[in-house]
Amino acid sequence: MTELAPPSPDAMAVVRAQNLGLTFPTNDGDVIALSDVNLTINKGEFVSFIGPSGCGKTTFLRTIADLEQPTSGTLTVNGTTPSDARLNRAYGYVFQAPALYPWRTIAQNVALPLEIMALTDKAERIARTLELVNLTGFENKYPWQLSGGMQQRASIARALSFDADLLLMDEPFGALDEIVRDHLNSELLKLWARTRKTIAFVTHSIPEAVYLSTKIVVMSPRPGRVTDIIESDLPAERPLDIRETPEFLRLAARVRDGLRAGHSYEE
């Protein structure tokens, strides 16, 4: 794994983890959430993290976002530390739940990061990002007046509103039903194609990971680690029925094998 250092090795790398480890101290002893993770996410990629609960996929995303601090190894985001990247507002984060503020309208919720970062042309940004997630016309609704899927779309708009090039998504559609989820997945692919953002996406659904990603990172628990990294060879244009093609099924089978190998000692 030695690298002959070219002048700018990270020119394309948005996220770069080397021997990354993270250990949580608890009352029942230490829990190794991440162990020896080596991974590069390049500009414009759509990377999915998949694995059973406890495999550290969310922890890895939170570490990129500077919500957790690694205990060993190095991690750079846009060539800087995660903390500096956060201060540079390098990424938008979408949580499992929409986490919209009930006392703000949809437009005001999208405006929240703009207010905090003291950005200008708020109205234009709100209109543009709500249009991206197909929520034009819902500006003055309150979150509780929207369905779950629409709420999650609003939270994606909130993450897009300040034009960060990296989008971190932590099981954003995990709480939604299958039909809404399919719809949002194809919307998300269109959005990715239009904005050319780099997306890191945590999921525990194999079809979702295969359908969305250019790269699939398979992880397994105890200790949390990367067991396989699969480059997808699916075409960029992906209608929903691509999921019945042999290429798709072959990729899905490989992911499933990776997951099975990861915790074979359990069965």
Partner: peptide, 12 residues
């Protein structure tokens, strides 16, 4: 909730 505080943290 923690998630809402985390959100504010990601905005620094």
């Amino acid at each position: 909730e923690a998630i809402q505080l985390d959100l504010m943290h990601t905005y620094s």
